[in-house]
């Protein structure tokens, strides 16, 4: 089992926040470069199969083109929606991938978690308010993924169980189950519109599984009041509105605003928050699901998210085992037959 799967979200890093903040634009060429580096590094590090799925922008095909590596673009439907990522994660699980690299924002990793809840994951940030994915080069990600997939570096040592916000919606008898990896927000809006959230006055409440002040976006609201680490249990609930406390928050990269805090409540794992009233639910920072005034939304935090691979730790262990030594490198190459 030395199979590595790679997913790239073509839509990440191009939304309206480039207009309202100094957020980074992530071009197709940039994404192709990251994937290409991950493929080369995974092959260099002994992955026997490197799997990709097709996408609307042909990023996977273009990244795989002409590389001397055991790379396959699988035959999967191209929908242009989040179902591409969900389907890819399911397929990679079926193909017994030992590690998955995903390029996108928090929402893309969320889609992986929908398709494969226990995915051993390296998430590379190409989105905007990224908390779950981190800024790491494809070269390091590809190597770490291959070492984990080959079992050279044990997943039990370098993999860390992430959290998720489990969401239950009952809207006039229509029940819907959903999840977020970082935060669920209740947005005072009627429309999904441009999806992103940059108007502080519309944020009614946030349930954050990860609340870090070293981030931007909704998670940073809670993070600047009651930090909760990505691997520690529980989370925090913040209700916005008139109150004693006001906090300066970067609601988007480089865009600070004052948020009025009405309530802060630490949440233990499994502790339920119930909200009602017409709003749009935002999952991991994007307006997605309008709910009616009759809807009841409950949410709780669980430590059942994907297994996040610590890339640096994985590579340090590999170095200590002399995996990068040239003599061992030849053994590595022999092992995948190239």
């Amino acid at each position: 089992m030395s199979t590595v799967g790679i997913i790239v979200n073509p839509n990440a890093g191009k939304d309206i926040r480039r207009l309202v903040t100094p957020a980074t634009h992530t071009s197709d060429v940039t994404k192709i470069g990251i994937v290409r580096r991950a493929i080369v590094a995974a092959a260099e590090s002994g992955a026997k199969r490197i799997l990709l799925v097709p996408d609307t922008h042909n990023l996977a095909q273009r990244a795989a083109e002409g590389i001397d590596a055991p790379v396959e673009v699988l035959d999967e439907p191209v929908s242009g929606s989040r179902h591409e990522t969900i389907g890819a994660a399911r397929r990679f699980r079926a193909e017994q991938a030992g590690a998955v690299i995903v390029l996108g924002g928090d929402g893309t990793s969320r889609d992986v978690a929908v398709g494969w809840p226990d995915a051993p994951l390296i998430a590379i940030s190409t989105g905007t308010n990224n908390v779950f994915p981190t800024a790491i080069d494809g070269t390091s990600a590809g190597a770490a993924a291959a070492f984990v997939a080959r079992g050279i570096v044990p997943l039990a040592v370098v993999g860390h169980r992430s959290k998720k916000v489990v969401v239950h919606i009952d809207d006039r008898g229509v029940v819907h189950e959903d999840l977020a990896l970082i935060d669920l927000a209740f947005i005072d809006a009627m429309f999904v519109g441009a999806r992103a959230i940059w108007d502080p006055l519309t944020v009614r409440a946030v349930v954050a599984a990860v609340a870090t002040p070293a981030s931007t976006g909704l998670s940073s609201i809670a993070g600047r009041i009651h930090p909760v680490g990505r691997f520690e249990p529980g989370g925090v609930f913040v209700r916005l509105g008139p109150g004693d406390r006001q906090v300066r928050v970067p609601l988007a990269p480089g865009a600070f605003t004052t948020m009025h805090i009405a309530e802060v409540r630490p949440l233990a794992d499994g502790e339920t928050i119930t909200m009602s009233g017409q709003c749009v639910l935002a999952f991991d920072g994007e307006r997605e699901r309008p709910v009616s005034a009759d809807a009841t939304v409950t949410a709780h935090i669980e430590s059942t998210g994907p297994l996040v691979i610590d890339v640096e730790h994985a590579l340090i262990l590999a170095a200590r085992d002399r995996i990068f030594d040239a003599t061992n490198h030849h053994l590595t190459k022999d092992s995948h037959g190239s």
């Binding site: 839509n11 191009k14 939304d15 634009h25 429309f191 999806r195």
Partner: peptide, 13 residues
């Protein structure tokens, strides 16, 4: 210049 993609079938966006 900055550039953004929006859903052109959604008038609100």
């Amino acid at each position: 210049m900055p550039g953004v993609i929006i859903d052109g079938m959604d008038v609100v966006a």
